[in-house]
Design a binder for these strands. Structure first.
Lengths: 250, 250
DNA sequence: CGCAATATTGACCACTCTCAATGAGGGTGG
DNA sequence: CCACCCTCATTGAGAGTGGTCAATATTGCG
């Protein structure tokens, strides 16, 4: 078992990936606890773009933590129309909306080569009965997911297209930055279509906004590649004082 | 202490109100556990329309369960613009988005004469370490809140005004019905302005839609009073197969 | 009884969607 | 290695849903 743990550590330091343990480290779990956590986590093979982590209707068994790559979570309504609920980057947890049911209500699709940790929820729940700070962290993570969704409700309910895209770019920027990447230069793993879908906009609108932002000197866009050239002004567009988003964000 | 419990029971049976214990009853807690739960719940005085349960920035200490009346939860963005995140009816829990922080990120305002139970979260958390099914139920409730918010994301992101209002009315209908009230006749405790705000629509649009629905024979509206005259057709408009919403819904 | 807040209704306008055409990459097979 | 194709992205023109502004009702409350 110890070998197992060391193995994980190697992974951790080598490629910025994560596990639930990592999500919980800030919370004062001691090393023994972290090891116990690591024991229940299944480290999955890398997946390819287009693969599904789970689909609507699949039995719910586990949460997933993204270690590398990115995942989009979406639901389909009665008409078969897709609504993207979030994009998950390394260090973020997903699948929490399935806890209250027996089956997943959403689907999760991998956007690029991605590796995830699978965390069997039953065992996590048992373990958290014995580790108060784990229980506490789980409540916190669930709550953060709520906060994220509520922030999106504000965006979709009140903000014009321009501000929606700015908010989206800033969210990515912050999340990359938190993971030790550049806050101003990154690649989008999702298509324009996906961005539009997520933000409640048509693809064409997204495209036009990218052009406008570029013309306004806010950023340089080349296909999937984004270079933010005026972060302060982008922030000013959003005008926001909220700070949600910490470990589970989309 | 037993007297206390009896006291609560009297309340419960007399006026359809709720407590956390009630939310947890379906889950196989035995009577002793329920009593323990009841012990930590503070039964608050009734509040008047316009009163705040909590405001943005207030220290987070408790969750609240609505026993009678209704509550709107909203956040303010940087511009001071309000976004209503949900309406809570009797039997529903609120405040869960504050768990991950020290302070409330939203405000909760009472829409009419309302009574709530206050549930100190610290104590709830401690108790749930000893009662696995309580822990499990809490996870479930958090998760349902996420599901509700995600359903709203679909509505705000993809649905036209007409369908938004239909969805809203059906949600109220189901929730009243679940509580033993009529599914087709009820009073709106919130203003047109609030409805529009919640649904991402202008007040005027809401007003026009009520008229159209009435002209189309879907319902009869008289100010706050709603009589749904063609529930099946209202359902058809929404076309939905989702069934979320169980204890915490808005 | 009268003022203030809320709701309704109408006219106009704008943001964004839809439709349609063009252009650019990326992968596959010849 | 290039040609082809298919998907994705961009760009333009026109249309429509829903927002804004403004005036008028209605209700509730002091």
């Amino acid at each position: 078992m110890t070998a197992h743990v060391f193995d994980i550590k190697g992974l951790k330091t080598s490629c910025q990936n994560c596990s639930l343990a990592e999500l919980c480290l800030p919370l004062g779990l001691d090393q023994v606890d972290v090891d116990r956590l690591d024991e229940i986590v299944r480290r999955a093979r890398p997946m390819n773009a287009g693969d599904h982590l789970f689909r609507t209707g699949d039995a719910f068994r586990s949460l997933y933590a993204v270690r590398a790559g990115s995942v989009k979570v979406y639901s389909l309504d009665a008409d078969g129309e897709e609504q993207i609920l979030g994009f998950h980057l390394p260090g973020e947890l997903l699948g929490m909306d399935a806890i209250s049911g027996k089956a997943h209500a959403c689907s999760a699709k991998v956007l690029e080569t991605t590796s995830v940790c699978e965390i069997p929820f039953e065992r996590l729940q048992e373990l958290s009965l014995r580790l108060p700070s784990l229980q506490s962290q789980l409540f916190r993570l669930l709550s953060q997911e709520i906060i994220h969704d509520e922030a999106m409700l504000l965006v979709l309910g009140k903000k014009p297209a321009e501000e929606r895209l700015a908010t989206f770019l800033l969210s990515l920027s912050e999340r990359f930055h938190r993971r030790g990447f550049s806050a101003t230069e990154f690649n989008l793993s999702m298509s324009r279509h996906d961005i539009g879908n997520y933000l409640g906009l048509a693809v064409e609108t997204v495209s036009r906004l990218f052009r406008r932002f570029q013309d306004d000197g806010l950023l340089e866009v080349q296909r999937k590649h984004i270079l933010i050239t005026d972060l302060p002004r982008l922030r000013a567009m959003v005008h926001m004082c909220d700070h949600a988003e910490q470990g589970t964000a989309h």
